[in-house]
């Protein structure tokens, strides 16, 4: 019994190598566009793209838990906050950024693991409620622990300055730092997904009893998925502080968790591209609707969300993949008949 993995079946014949070459070319083009983008665009646009990458990492963490393993979480904003406060509080005390990164992600991972050990026995809405408690408790806690968090005002920091030799502005340098950080954690997730862990998570999502029968230690892997997810949330929080140089309790409210879940559904589950697209929706669409009409911005955002879900109930990335495959197949068929 093999587990369903959402990978498109590779077609045999002449199409494969052409497709592989096409894919490599696309990757090179993407990297080039990514590298040149901040040099020619405005600081505002750079910040937007940086934020998209930040939220993409957080949504990817959520995808590990929700998409890969089939669990629910409304707690991602709390882990995002732990990572952010870790690096910001460290910076206030004169720590180097890497130490803050380690602190923030380690605390996020430990809290995630501690929550997951008892919660892994639960599923569905019970798990959802338990994770919902995290941001609800985290916001007043962050306001109270003034010594560490700066209270309701939050923390302003100045970290990740562009070195003089680069000649880059702050926004450009932070764009590259966040971009490379995001690329690393995305590559790690992609490797994880293909390996033993990814298959175990798949098995748990599809059928827990069957996974047990196949020798997958369900509880252990659920705790692992939860911990990984919170570590990714923590990393995203660190990257967020790198991007905006600020963190306050208002950042980690439950609404952010819900928006991330919405972003995940918009982008599409179990898709790295989907995580980026979902994050882009979360960052860009409110700006667009705000520029259309300030008073109706929120209404338009909600309507956009509903329209995307109605048109693409499985998310944008699967819909795009489907469209691309159809065009490619048609072209191949045309090439074959023309020969």
């Amino acid at each position: 019994m093999s587990v369903v993995v959402d990978e498109p079946a590779v077609t045999d014949g002449g199409g494969t190598s052409r497709r592989r070459r096409g894919r490599a070319l696309t990757a090179v083009a993407l990297v080039l566009v990514f590298a040149v983008f901040p040099l020619v665009m405005s600081p505002f646009a750079n910040l937007q793209v940086t934020l998209i990458l930040v939220y993409a990492v957080a949504i990817l963490g959520l995808d590990i838990l929700v998409g890969w393993t089939g669990q629910v979480s409304l707690g991602q904003s709390a882990f995002f906050g732990i990572g952010a406060y870790g690096v910001a509080a460290g910076a206030v005390h004169g720590w180097p950024v890497w130490a803050g990164l380690l602190l923030g992600t380690a605390v996020a991972g430990v809290v995630g693991c501690l929550v997951a050990i008892p919660a892994a026995r639960l599923r569905g809405y019970a798990l959802g409620m338990i994770t919902l408690t995290l941001p609800v408790v985290a916001v007043p806690l962050a306001k109270r622990m003034e010594v560490v968090t700066g209270g309701a005002q939050g923390l302003n920091v100045t970290i990740v300055q562009a070195p003089g030799w680069t000649g880059l502005a702050a926004d450009q340098w932070r764009y590259y730092v966040v971009g490379i950080g995001a690329a690393i954690v995305f590559a790690l997730a992609a490797a994880l997904r293909r390996g033993r862990f990814g298959r175990a998570f798949d098995a748990i999502r599809v059928n827990e009893a069957l996974a047990t029968a196949q020798g997958v230690h369900v509880t252990r892997y659920k705790v692992l998925a939860f911990t990984l997810s919170s570590v990714y949330g923590g990393v995203a929080g660190v990257l967020y502080v790198v991007a905006v140089q600020f963190i306050s309790p208002e950042t980690l409210v439950l609404t952010l968790s819900i928006s991330m879940l919405a972003g995940l559904a918009i982008g599409g589950l179990r898709s790295l591209l989907g995580c980026v697209l979902g994050a882009a929706f979360y960052v860009v669409v409110p700006n667009l609707t705000g520029s259309v009409s300030a008073g109706q911005s929120y209404l338009l955002y909600g309507v956009c969300l509903l329209v995307v879900m109605l048109l693409m109930p499985r998310g944008v990335a699967p819909a795009l993949g489907h469209a691309v495959r159809r065009v490619a197949n048609r072209r191949e068929r045309a090439a074959a008949s023309g020969e």
């Binding site: 879940l261 209404l299 955002y301 509903l306």
Partner: peptide, 24 residues
């Protein structure tokens, strides 16, 4: 009967839209 997450997110979309409508 579809993906449960999609249904939840649709109600979230409804929440945001109705909130926007009330403010409007």
């Amino acid at each position: 009967g579809g993906e449960p997450l999609a249904a939840i997110v649709v109600t979230v979309g409804l929440l945001i839209s109705v909130n926007g409508l009330v403010s409007l």
